[in-house]
Structures are given as structure tokens and as C-alpha cells.
């Protein structure tokens, strides 16, 4: 509607200035990360605040990949994040389906409990979880992280999946069930293919969340060979706080999977965040 509206030239100029501001604000920190990562060590200090390095190198990346444990951290994080994403999406799809299609006793209570889990400080349960995990002998295991992250992410993912199921007409399943499918068959053959984009988006959201979790991973993992990427990077930073180029190269590498998933889930962002934040 505003395309036709005649605008004051100052207003248009202001708008483009604002656009430029947001773009710079969003991208500059990431650009700087990349810039330091590709600046040769010798130039980092002498060219402190230059916007473009006068020389470019990729040795920081090869050092990080081949001479440190980062590949192992990366692998651990990948296992944890993928495991969490798949388990969460599966369970959340079930729960979201139940919320979307059934009216049953206790529904309101369960929804309320799920909302409460989004509110209370998660750090509140960091001590009990540490003790439980320790008593089970699961400290320093990726399994414990996957279980904990899965539980943390189920409520949000459930509301997200519910909003996707709500978007699929109920008549489709009714028709399938009329034709002799059981509800589970109708779910598998009719509803499931239609929710694939929703399942994908949920996978992406949960993967991103699990990939960036730091505090519980710090608490539950102390052995080097079970460290996830955030824990590994933080340990690296506190140990070798002068290897700027390498640290930032590692940072850029940590960014890659999130960015890939981001490109993928970008389309669902509005639906996802609003359903998670406001529903209920």
C-alpha cells in the first residue's frame, strides 16, 4: 500500500540510512571475526583497526582443523545437536499432534506445565541435574547431553509442531480413516508427508539451540574428548588467549552449521518464533 504513496525525499533518504545502519550493525561483528581469521599473524597487531587486511591467509583455518582438537569438538557437537534435533522433533511431533487433534482431560494442565518450563530459570536445575547425571555415572557422556537438551527443547518444538498440524485440514485424516486407515496409518501416510516442511523447520530450530548451548555442557562435560564445540572453544580461549587468528578461525567454523541451518529455516522464522513466544 505504501508503494504508491508519494514520499518526502528526506523520508526516503532516512529510510535508506536506517536500512544501512541495521545491515552494518548486524554484519560488522561477523565481518570482523572473518577478517581477523584471515589476517596473517604478523599483521594482526600492526593493522589493528584497518577495515581490510593487506594480506590474506588461510593457515589459521588449516592449523585449527588439523593441529588442534577442534575437529573432535566439532564431531561431538554434531552428534549431540543432530541426536537432540531428531529425538526432539519426533517426540514434539507426537505431542504437537495430540494437542492439535485431540480434546482430552488434562490437556490444559500439560500445556500449562510446558509453558512454565519455558519460564523458570533453567539454571535452577543445573545442580540437581549434575547430581542425577553423576549418580547415574553419565558425566562426560554425550548421551546425557542429548537427553537433557531434548527435554529442554520439547516444549518449544511441541508448540511449533502444533501450529504446523493446525494448518493441515482435519478432513484429510478423516477421509483416510473413513477409507479404513487406522489413525496411526492416516498420520503416517497422509499427515506426515504434509508436515515435512514443519518437521524440517523444527529440526533446524532445535539443532541451532543445541549447537549453541554452553552452560549445561560446561557443567556436565569436563573431559577433553567429550567436549562440545562451545566448551572446547571456551577452554581454548582461556588457555591460549593470544592466538587471535586461530580462535577466530575456530569461531568462523562454528558459525558454518548454524548459518546453513539458518538459510534453511529462514522462511519459517516468523511462524516459529511467534508460535513459540506467544501461543498459549
Amino acid at each position: 500500500m505504501s508503494a504508491i504513496r508519494r514520499r518526502h525525499p528526506a523520508l526516503t533518504a532516512g529510510k535508506y540510512a536506517a536500512l544501512a545502519f541495521y545491515l552494518l550493525f548486524a554484519l560488522f561483528p561477523l565481518y570482523w571475526l572473518l577478517k581477523i581469521a584471515i589476517t596473517p599473524d604478523a599483521l594482526i597487531f600492526s593493522e589493528g583497526t584497518r577495515l581490510f587486511p593487506s594480506d590474506v591467509t588461510f593457515t589459521n583455518f588449516s592449523t585449527v582443523i588439523f593441529q588442534t582438537d577442534f575437529l573432535a569438538y566439532f564431531g561431538n557437537s554434531l552428534i549431540v545437536s543432530l541426536g537432540t534435533a531428531f529425538l526432539t522433533t519426533m517426540f514434539a511431533a507426537g505431542a504437537g499432534y495430540a494437542f492439535s487433534r485431540f480434546v482430552f482431560k488434562g490437556k490444559r494442565i500439560i500445556i500449562a506445565v510446558m509453558l512454565i518450563t519455558q519460564m523458570f530459570p533453567l539454571l535452577m536445575i543445573i545442580a540437581p541435574i549434575y547430581k542425577i547425571v553423576a549418580d547415574l555415572g553419565l558425566l562426560n557422556s554425550l548421551t546425557s547431553l542429548i537427553i537433557v537438551y531434548t527435554a529442554f527443547n520439547i516444549p518449544f518444538a511441541t508448540f511449533l509442531m502444533q501450529s504446523f498440524f493446525d494448518g493441515i485440514p482435519k478432513d484429510l485424516e478423516d477421509a483416510a480413516m473413513m477409507d479404513g486407515c487406522t489413525r496411526f496409518q492416516a498420520l503416517r501416510k497422509v499427515v506426515f508427508p504434509l508436515t515435512l516442511p514443519g518437521l524440517g523447520a523444527t529440526l533446524g530450530f532445535v539443532f541451532t539451540a543445541a549447537w549453541s548451548e554452553l552452560l549445561f555442557a560446561l557443567m556436565l562435560i569436563s573431559k577433553n574428548d567429550a567436549m562440545t564445540f562451545p566448551v572446547g572453544l571456551l577452554t581454548f580461549v582461556s588457555k591460549f588467549s593470544v592466538d587471535w587468528g586461530q580462535m577466530m578461525a575456530a569461531g568462523v567454523l562454528a558459525l558454518v552449521p548454524s548459518c546453513l541451518f539458518f538459510i534453511f529455516i529462514q522462511r519459517y522464522l516468523v511462524q516459529g518464533l511467534t508460535s513459540g513466544a506467544v501461543k498459549g
Binding site: 541495521y22 545491515l23 548486524a26 554484519l27 561483528p29 561477523l30 570482523w32 571475526l33 581477523i36 594482526i44 597487531f45 589493528g48 583497526t49 541451532t208 549447537w211 549453541s212 554452553l214 562451545p230 572453544l233 571456551l234 580461549v237 587471535w244 580462535m247 577466530m248 569461531g251 562454528a254 558459525l255 548454524s258 548459518c259 541451518f261 539458518f262 538459510i263 529462514q266 522464522l269
Partner: peptide, 28 residues
């Protein structure tokens, strides 16, 4: 897509990036 990108950056990484930006040795 570009202005929403910070949302996808892992929090520990945003923290480190900004800590580095505020560091006079390497940050502007």
C-alpha cells in the same frame, strides 16, 4: 535474511565476538 543472521549465531560465539571487538588489541 542478513539482518536476522545474528539470531542464528551461537550465543557463546556472539559473546566471544563482542568481547574481541571491545578488546583494544584486535578490536576497533
Amino acid at each position: 535474511a542478513l539482518v536476522f543472521l545474528p539470531w542464528a549465531v551461537p550465543t557463546f560465539l556472539s559473546a566471544l565476538t563482542w568481547a574481541w571487538l571491545f578488546n583494544p588489541v584486535i578490536g576497533p
